[in-house]
Design a protein around this nucleic acid. Structure first.
Length: 509
RNA sequence: GCGCCGCUAGCUCAAUUGGCAGAGCAACUGACUCUUAAUCAGUAGGUUCGGGGUUCGAUUCCCUGGCGGCGCACCA
């Protein structure tokens, strides 16, 4: 490397060379730990309670490894903090313990280095459990300073208070490794995310659902209204699509005789990026034979309730200062009722022209060629959605919006469908699945007409799916849950990028 | 895609009307053997996001491009 290095980077390289010169391996092969920091602290506390400390106050010995996150030199002694996956532990180095030469080598240690240390545990005068370091080794020399601001622990709340923390949003997303390295609470968000997914699995597994994997690379996309990513398979010499939903494949499996199936996977939608949308996102879909959307509503209530309970310990959570209650039963409103109330007249009896007048009055753009379904959807989005702060099921959507849902058994013009909203955004979507292949073909044809008219998100006609339905799909309820958004709520994060480890960004430079 | 805001040292941020580009932390040198945002003294560190323009002089004003945030639109 001949690139010009900043003074800071040059300095780290110099220390690396010095370590090598002293015969110290700066990138070790491993380190056997006796404790992580939390276990070491716990074991010392237990020894203290058992009054088994020696005359100098030393308790059990520990070998701990971690990243140096703070350093306070005092001439012939030094304090440091080492952070590992379980937390932090203080280190105490003394020249009279380590010897002049070995203590001197500590000058080559920087914040950010990974160290392994060993020595007895003791409690300092100020009460902190600390390793009295008798031996130490460099595990990894850090060649680039971490963006680590100073921080202290608030004695009142126990929370970490940052002073000049690493907070440039762009850098945090681009260099997630650095964000995670200096923000334990960012790591906690992703631990929670993993727990949410694990609990969804546990809930469904326990209820007899089979986890399956369906293609991400598809010859034809479907199952949602969205623009796909298109790619090309060279040896087959044909276009392939990244899935926008796994719905149609999961229902094929119900046709095949798997009565309860689910998949937690990434969908890809070729659309804009904002606070609530990443082009690649995680969706849970599950399908249950012999069930209708009312059964699925109960399932969603129980599933979400279970996840909220696991993370918060109760049925409530706070998002952006707003208290949300997921206590069952959740509120429910009829799509048409809610929209009718907002419009001041019954949307079912309104003509397309009348709807368009109302939409125009609200300055809704993109009305060009919009059909009845799209108009209702847009009006609902503007007039009703923002008010759905507490978790609410919106029931029975217009048929034009839902080409894969069964028509309502008693209400004309609508389908058996619900969406779960909270904080004004959609969390889940479900219906009594349309299993009449003749009706399904008509719905596909209607979508094809919309597509011809210029709707880039219109559904394609999937002949293979129709063939599957012709074999016969039992009555089935299906649900999709936006996992990222649920995690946003549960971790109180303002942007979907805060719950996706490596969100989509434009190229650097 | 459109609008608004932002981009200055490793990190967080200043810089008056257009007038020598600064501070805290990190780093470096020195002092200090129970500190914890350690302390004290000193030192160094800059393509002010890129390109162009106006001007005696641009971090500052204008044009243009890049990236990000927020809002709108689209969507789950």
């Amino acid at each position: 490397m001949t690139e010009e290095l900043s003074q800071t980077l040059r300095d780290r390289r110099w220390k690396l060379d010095e370590l090598l010169r002293l015969g110290i391996r700066p990138f070790e092969y491993g380190f056997e730990r006796s404790h992580d920091s939390a276990a070491a602290i716990a074991e010392f506390a237990a020894a203290e309670d058992g009054e088994s400390l020696d005359a100098d106050g030393n308790g059990p010995r520990a070998r701990v490894g971690g990243r140096v996150v703070a350093w306070r030199g005092h001439g012939k002694s030094a304090f440091a903090h080492l952070e590992d996956g379980s937390g932090r532990i203080q280190l105490y180095f003394r020249q009279d313990v380590l010897g002049e030469e070995r203590f001197g080598v500590l000058d080559l240690v920087d914040i950010g280095d990974w160290l392994g240390v060993e020595g007895p545990l003791f409690r300092t005068r100020t009460g902190e459990v600390t390793v009295r370091v008798e031996a130490w080794t460099v595990l990894t020399k850090s060649l680039r300073p971490l963006p680590l601001g100073k921080s202290e622990v608030d004695p009142e709340s126990g929370e970490r208070v940052y002073h000049a923390a690493f907070k440039d949003t762009e850098s945090r997303y681009r260099q997630r490794y650095a964000d995670l390295a200096v923000h334990p609470e960012a790591r906690e968000v992703f631990r929670t995310r993993a727990r949410v997914v694990a609990e969804m699995r546990a809930f469904l597994d326990k209820d007899g659902f089979l986890e399956v994997e369906t293609p991400a690379l598809q010859p034809m996309y479907g199952g949602a209204a969205a623009r796909p990513f298109i790619t090309h398979h060279h040896s087959l010499d044909r276009a392939m699509y990244l899935r926008i939903a796994d719905e149609l494949y999961l229902k094929r499996l119900v046709v095949g005789g798997f009565e309860r199936v689910y998949e937690i996977t990434h969908d890809f939608r070729n659309e804009g990026v904002d606070r609530l949308h990443n082009p690649e996102f995680t969706m849970l879909e599950f399908y249950q034979a012999f069930a209708d959307y009312r059964d699925m509503l109960e399932q969603v209530e129980r599933l979400i309730g279970h996840v909220v309970e696991t993370v918060t310990g109760g049925s409530d959570l706070t998002y952006r200062g707003e208290r949300l209650s997921f206590a069952r039963p959740l509120a429910r409103v009829q799509f048409m009722d809610a929209l009718g109330k907002a419009l001041g007249s019954d949307p079912m009896t309104m003509t397309v022209t009348e709807l368009k007048v109302r939409a125009t009055a609200l300055h809704l753009p993109e009305l060009e060629g919009a059909g009845r379904g799209k108009l209702l959807d847009k009006l609902f989005g503007v007039l009703v959605e923002p008010s759905l702060v507490q978790p609410t099921f919106v029931m029975d959507h217009p048929i034009e919006l839902s080409p894969l849902a069964k028509t309502h058994r008693s209400e004309p013009g609508v389908v058996e469908r619900f969406e779960l909203y909270a904080m004004g955004t959609e969390l889940a979507n479900a219906f009594s699945e349309l299993n009449d292949p003749l009706d399904q073909r008509e719905r596909f044809e209607a979508q094809r007409a919309l597509g011809v008219a210029g709707d880039a998100e219109a559904h394609q006609v999937d002949e293979d799916y129709l063939r599957a339905l012709e074999y016969g799909m039992p009555p089935t309820g299906g649900v999709g849950v936006g996992v990222d958004r649920l995690v946003m709520l549960l971790t109180d994060q303002p942007s979907i990028r805060d719950v996706i480890l490596f969100p989509v960004l434009r190229e650097e430079d």
